[in-house]
């Protein structure tokens, strides 16, 4: 997904505020690591796998689901890779740290879990062909990137889902080179937003069969954020009729940076430059002791988009080592639809 987790990922893996502070300074530096460059030619299936010479990377799946009970649900399955050094070994010496986040959001609750592992020993990792991404018993795997099964477990939830791609991969920014700030920080960023999803959610009240649609983001980089950027708001929206939109806003001391991708139902895209899409909070909720915007106005004048985006469950707080908000949303206004919202830095 975007930038969002860049910072998140860098800071993560440990709950150590001091270490985290040490990391805050890393926004501008990428010593020893490779840096994304415009004009990169993606190579699949190899690029579905990890890139250890880049500092951060993720496989980020969200899905909006409808239960056979008629209720709306959302799930998240994320695997982050964070490199302390730009190489990999096959033992405890590995400087690659992996982190998994999984969550299920129901109309009246939000359940999440977190896993940590280092690379090298086989506890977590990604291989591109046949595709498998895993940490502990959590797994996203299949013969290729278009046909996947997905599973995760927490103390009080779990799910087993299957994903089938109904459309092509989508590249953000300049053919997958996605700029994140006016200073030119960037990442490689592509998505598979066309997954059809079906399977079972395991909830405390019992199993629920679900169907719906999923959106998987792949992104990797080494110097994601400008030093003044403190948080982000990120939207992945699917409209009735098949069009989709990805949009984000990076909140910075020197002004916000916005970016968006319009995705037509056939998978063709249009990159929308900084300052075009307008993202305005309409209302906030008290979540985990903070004021978090749970309703937004999203305006994209060129496409005639003027919509309100509302959280399905305001309390979709990820109380993980590095906390953020991530949950399913509904869209009303000039377009109707569903999607996912992520917000950090609140």
């Amino acid at each position: 997904m975007n930038v969002k987790t860049l910072l998140l990922c860098l800071m993560t893996f440990f709950p150590l505020p001091l270490w985290a502070q040490g990391y805050a300074g890393l926004g501008g530096s990428a010593e020893g690591f490779d840096v994304p460059k415009a004009g990169y030619a993606f190579d699949f299936p190899k690029d579905h796998g990890p890139h250890p010479s880049y500092r951060i990377e993720w496989w980020y799946l969200t899905a909006n689901l409808k239960g056979e009970d008629g209720r709306d649900y959302g799930i998240q399955w994320t695997l982050f890779r964070s490199a302390l050094k730009p190489f990999e070994t096959d033992d405890w010496q590995s400087p690659q740290i992996w982190m998994g986040h999984a969550a299920t959001t129901t109309p009246d609750g939000h359940f999440f879990a977190e896993r940590l592992s280092r690379g090298g020993i086989g506890q977590a990792g990604v291989i591109s062909q046949p595709f498998e991404a895993w940490i502990d018993e959590w797994r996203m795997a299949g013969p290729d990137f278009d046909t996947l099964t997905l599973t995760a477990n927490g103390e009080d939830f779990g799910y087993d889902l299957s994903l089938t791609a109904q459309g092509p991969l989508v590249f953000h920014g300049d053919a997958g080179y996605s700029v994140k700030s006016a200073d030119g920080q960037a990442s490689y960023y592509y998505s598979q937003p066309f997954y059809a999803v079906e399977g079972v959610l395991r909830l405390q009240g019992g199993d629920v069969r679900v169907t719906g649609q999923g959106w998987l983001d792949r992104e990797w980089s080494s110097q994601p954020l400008a030093a003044d950027q403190s948080g982000w708001d990120w939207f992945s929206l699917s409209f009735e009729g098949g069009d989709k939109m990805m949009a984000f806003r990076l909140r910075g001391g020197r002004g916000d940076f916005t970016s968006a991708t319009w995705i037509n139902a056939d998978g063709s895209t249009e990159a929308i430059p900084n300052g075009t899409v307008q993202l305005t909070p309409l209302r906030t909720d008290q979540v985990a002791g903070r004021e978090v915007p749970t309703q937004w106005r999203v305006v994209l004048p060129d496409r005639g988009v003027e919509i309100e985006v509302s959280a399905l469950t305001p309390n979709a707080w990820m109380g993980t080592r590095f906390e953020y908000w991530e949950g399913p949303v509904t869209v009303t206004g000039s377009q109707e639809g569903i999607g996912y919202l992520e917000m950090t830095g609140y």
């Binding site: 001091l18 990391y23 050094k85």
Partner: peptide, 15 residues
């Protein structure tokens, strides 16, 4: 982590 000596995870976990 609360002590005066700042340590980055990279230092702790890598040689």
């Amino acid at each position: 982590e609360q002590s005066a000596e700042a340590t980055e995870p990279a230092d702790m976990l890598t040689a």
